[in-house]
Amino acid sequence: MPQAKKRQQRLLADPLVAESLFAFKLVLTMSLIEAQDITKIYSFGDVELRALGGVSTTIEKGEFVAIMGPSGSGKSTFMNILGCLDKPTGGVYRIEGIDTKDLARDELAEVRNSKIGFVFQGFNLLSRTSAIENVELPMLYNGLAAKERHDRAREALKAVGLEQREHNHPNQLSGGQQQRVAIARALVNRAPIILADEPTGNLDTKTSEEIMNLFVRLNNESGITIILVTHEPDIAAYSRRIIRFKDGHIVNDEKK
């Protein structure tokens, strides 16, 4: 059918159509996280500390990545940059195609709010605040209605198996339960990424297993991308990709 082919050619010649198709292709091929030659230099007066010396990697949607390395290897610095908590000295960091270099302070806060859920080693829950209110916290900053906030927080607590503990304060919960509240908080805004910095560092082996199984389940069932920093091989074993840091560089990147 030469006529149809002609029409297709005419359509492609239209610059607007061509540009839209290009943008569409870009979205399809875009990585969730894209780091290119990231450097981070801390300067204390005359002394310069090169924490990251040009790190490049990409992480796709749905991956389960463990970042390992000895202390001082730059893995935490890299995590902070991935979490938009810190800005790189050099290089490009894109999250869902957005270049974070161009973002203002409040725009970065918005990215953290909508795209990233944080889980910390020390849980970082607000004390004297009930579990459900801790989980509601991220939604205070994106303007959801009170009813919706409450429903979503309950849902998230249920997802981590804490529906009975809604009104307990952090000091009335065990370490594992506190970490699960933190995970519920990370889930509640339906962020595509969970960044976990030594999430089992303060937990015993049995509880660590429970938390890791929860991460595995979230990764499998909800397709949430999980990036965790750990120095324990047992913990890293739950992941499907391990990135090893040493002296501010990636020395090894293996997928299982």
Partner: peptide, 16 residues
């Protein structure tokens, strides 16, 4: 300070 840090990490803006 730590509480402020937590709030910022989960998306509190300057004016919040």
């Amino acid at each position: 300070t730590r509480e402020i840090g937590i709030r910022m990490a989960i998306g509190a803006k300057t004016w919040d």
